[in-house]
Amino acid sequence: MLLIPCPWCGPRDEIEFSYGGEAHIAYPAEPDELSDAQWADFLFMRHNPKGDFSERWYHSSGCRRWFNVIRSTVTHEIRAVYRVGEPPPEAGS
């Protein structure tokens, strides 16, 4: 089980959280302008790196807030945690 440092509550067990998948997928600024291929990309296509991954977590059994995590998908090491709206820090910082 992961120990996830919530930016508001501190380190808590993974079972207190829900996973939100890839981070930084912004809703299209001009939805009416998108082609079907662009919609497919927004809705379905995802990064799936073997290495560092920016992802969203939700502290569902805690403060009930969303935040972002950079985590290695190989070692599961959490390299950075940051709040929604903040730019991703350099991994490892």
Binding site: E14, K50, E55, R71, T73, H76
Partner: peptide
């Protein structure tokens, strides 16, 4: 979560 670690929790 996403993982390539071939082990689960």
């Amino acid at each position: 979560y996403n993982s390539y670690a071939q082990r689960g929790s």
